[in-house]
Amino acid sequence: MMSSTAPAQAPSTEATRSRATIPARLASYGTLLGLVALIILFSVLRPQVFLTPLNFTNILEQIAILAIVTAVQTVVMVVGDFDLSVGALASLVGVITAQLLVAGTDPAAAVAAGLLTGLLAGAVNGALVSYLNLSAFIATLATMTSFTGLALLLSNGSTVFGLPDSFVWLGQGRLGPVPVPVVIALALVLLIWFVLSKTVLGRAWYAVGGNAEAARLSGVNVRLVRFSAFLVSGTGAALAGIVLTARLASGHPTAADALMLSSIAAVFLGITLSRAGQPTIGGTAVGLGIMGVLSNGLNIMQVNSYVQQVLTGLIIVLAVSLSRLSRRRR
């Protein structure tokens, strides 16, 4: 009919131009390149220590618990919110589980109780955000504060020791050569990947994060969808708290607090890889990789841990601004 308007085809194909696209491409993959660069850097600097299967397992083990929190933080950030309470909640669940165990509860029941606590806490966050219309920032900042307070109250501010071996296995055991926390984290990451990319729920999460009004007018139950994301993050935070408690063989009221900022940073690093500006599990994995390799490499190099923190902050700023630059001029 109209020669120039073949449907779903390039308006004109005769012209090709690849100038500006190569640097732009590189910049948008900057975060991935950054990970590769870090690996090369540490491999060259400390080949005998860094580039070994043992160290690789080490890195995975070090980031396993962070990976659990980050995977669920990804879900909340897909929906366009944050969950600032994940760290505090993980600590709280750690304390509760540890106390139940010390009181002689069966480990399976204690773990179930811990997960249930997380689910309930997630429901509170979700209700505040999606049914009472509080901003996620305020709501989870408030619950974060309360969760920390609760954890301190319950534990009297001290560490809970004396956990049974069968429970400690969750944090310190191995399945063949693979540490149990790594298995748990991998399983969760795979599950979240599946839900995000293959299911109707995942599509609804992305749609609500992309344009809540358009999602609503498409028949999506926006409130329920946001609520469900917080259920996931609450439960995931609880899982992280349980594994951490097992790994440390003790429950401490602030043990997991630092996970929150690191998880958000890792998701942000991942977002730099995404075209739509929304998180993906793949991107999150790269973000986690950067965090893990960086801290492991710097440890191997025996860099002062304060300096490590400064460097981590700088790297995050660098990666995020690189990807911004690539987006600016289109």
Binding site: T199, G202, R203, Q278
Partner: peptide
Amino acid sequence: RSQGLVMTHSVQDNIALANLGRFSRLGIA
């Protein structure tokens, strides 16, 4: 822009959005 589309999503995903339930089985798209 504000009501009809998720601007950063693809043509396909936008068309699917109003039809998620119909294009899925057991919750899998």
